[in-house]
Design a protein around this nucleic acid. Structure first.
Length: 124
RNA sequence: GCAGUAAAUCGCCUUAUCGCUCGCGUUCUAAACCAAGUUUAGUACUUGAGAGGAAAGUCCGAACACCAUAGUGCAUUAUAGUGGUUAACAGCCAUCCACCGUGAGGUGAGGAAAAGUGCAACAGAAAGAAUGUACAGGUAAUGCUGUAGUGAAAUCAGGUAAACUCUAUAAGGUGCAAUGUCAUGUAAACCAGCGUUAAGGGCUGCACGUCCGAUUGCUGGAGGGUAGACAGCUAGAGUUUAUUGGUAACAAUAAAUGUAGAUAAAUGAUAAGGGUACUGGUAUGAUUUGUCAGAGCCAGUAUACAGAAUUCGGCUUAUAGAUUUACUAAUUUU
């Protein structure tokens, strides 16, 4: 349960996504970028997170799927380390802005740096 | 054995840990109805299933849905030996012809030039609106006639239709973001019927023809748009095997089988091991002592193309590597 990433925790509503891109703030640790926004949910979840890869940079669907899976996996494993005690709710969108195909080790490492940077910023 | 030709098949596997989507079942919680219990929603657990041969390109053909029933003529587009096959096709099968290949085989936009228009290298006076060389014949006169000469073809026609064209056949449009249903909540908004008026608009590019119809009055209904949820959504021209008919594509019959349904879009990540192929080394073997082979062992590298999105039948293109069958030519051996 701790490492779970089920339907409820995914960012799916079109309206929420539009709102996130319009009003959200961004943190970048190349090749990842996190767009975030404070929000309230009725269904009890604390974080709603989406993952995205540009179609321009990665034209083949196989590659996009691969990268998105790596991003989701890294998010899933790192989430409880950083956000287990969090009480405020957030919308998250994690973008991959690199041109190369990444490995899991790279994505995992950068994801940790990204969350540390985000928490620092958020406190101030 | 080597070189090739044509078909067909497969296209990584195992274990552990942590996850994702859907279905069935069970437990608990919440809501509705008096209760039993049922229904709906959520949580947890058990269990089952979870990408391809091209899922791709979106190039043809259909199913299905809607549009104002979508008619007629012209235009436009597509197809093109002959016969068969199919729900349908530009696909597939058979066969004839032409060309290519020693051969197995391969390739083909292969209908019509006696409807008309256009085009044509070199040679030639001249390849159609422009005339003429030599010799012979003929006339009042003239390329008027014949022969020679050029060429595939000379006032006699021929070639070319991946040139226009003609002939035959086919084609209404838009696509599952189609389309239908649901609950929340508000207006001066919406819908239906009848009447009024006829601007404007639609039906395929145009014409004919045809249909809708702003506005406004009355009556009735309780709803429209956007976002969301549900249905459409996977049992279908299904898959496999056998038999029969057919040269074959394919068809018929019988038996067995249940096989993804996501929606910022599930089918994954990590670790270990194993396949397979290639490269190098080596045990070893052969030896003309230069080297050659190397199935076992060791190491390294590679493991492709690519991700369902309404569903089928094709075509095209991309693919590391592996396997099977049939056949051909030359050579060697028997």
């Amino acid at each position: 349960m701790v490492f779970g990433y089920s339907k409820k925790d995914k960012l799916k509503r079109k309206k929420l996504i539009e709102q996130l891109f319009a009003e959200g703030k961004a943190v970048t640790v190349f090749p990842l970028r996190l767009i975030y926004l404070k929000a309230d949910f009725n269904d009890g979840s604390i974080l709603k997170t989406g993952v995205s890869v540009s179609k321009k940079l990665h034209k083949k669907a196989v590659n996009r799927n691969k990268i998105k899976r790596l991003l989701r996996e890294a998010y899933r494993l790192n989430k409880p380390i950083y956000f287990n005690k969090s009480e405020t709710s957030y919308l998250f969108m994690i973008l991959y802005i690199g041109k190369e195909k990444p490995t899991f080790q790279l994505v995992d490492e950068k994801m940790k740096l990204l969350f540390e940077k985000f928490l620092k910023l958020d406190k101030n």
